[in-house]
Design a protein around this nucleic acid. Sequence first.
DNA 1: GTATTTGCAAATACTTTGCAAAACC
DNA 2: GGTTTTGCAAAGTATTTGCAAATAC
Lengths: 127, 127
Amino acid sequence: MNPIKNLRVTPQRRVILEELRKVRSHPTADELYEMVRKRLPKVSLGTIYRNLDLLSSEGIIQKVQAGNSQMRFDGNPHPHIHICCTNCGRVADVHSGPDTAALCREIDTDFTILSCNVLVYGVCPEC
Amino acid sequence: MNPIKNLRVTPQRRVILEELRKVRSHPTADELYEMVRKRLPKVSLGTIYRNLDLLSSEGIIQKVQAGNSQMRFDGNPHPHIHICCTNCGRVADVHSGPDTAALCREIDTDFTILSCNVLVYGVCPEC
DNA sequence: GTATTTGCAAATACTTTGCAAAACC
DNA sequence: GGTTTTGCAAAGTATTTGCAAATAC
């Protein structure tokens, strides 16, 4: 874990990352809080938020803003497309589709492009 | 205005829509509140929120979630790509680039696709 | 030993909601 | 006249922050 900086390896940080990497569900901060709490019952929600923020700004995980009011988190930092169910809010990865780096090249703008984010809305098989 | 439903034409609603259509800045609810307040000093922020919600669910305007914590609004309901400055938060339209409907067709998923949203991050000329 | 991190609780930021009065058609 | 909409204020939801104690290195 610790590719950069003065990021100390605390049990909280380690467990947060382990739990996040275990799932493919793109959990919200409070879902992750419940997951981590099973292993570290005294962890606080503030610690979850602080670490998710830190880990994502270090590029170790990624934040996913998917329509809902709550931020979601993805243990896979590699850019990829997400699809969000408009009915149940579930967020899934899209395994194949357009390459976001290629999309960037098609954009006509006077901004200096940094990244290109694709969020698809749809209805999941369960809904 | 009033394409559908029992949407009454109140001064508040009319001015909110007029002000939103006047600008290309994708204002937040409170920015729009200030704009509307110049013409209707007694308008309340709650009314702004309620109308923006209504107008967007009727497809008359659109909500734009652009990285920041605040929702932004676009008087142009036609789907198009937005670009958001990571430095100042400004949101602009992308005038030409990939067609989002075409992108949808490239997506490989077991969801039933409804729409495809592209949000580009970059640095604006001013920053 | 010292800087970072934690838990706790309070604070913040944005948005939504309940309700009675006002306005629209 | 009846239903929708408004203003106001209070509540709600998600997230951030201050601080002293605890911990990592």
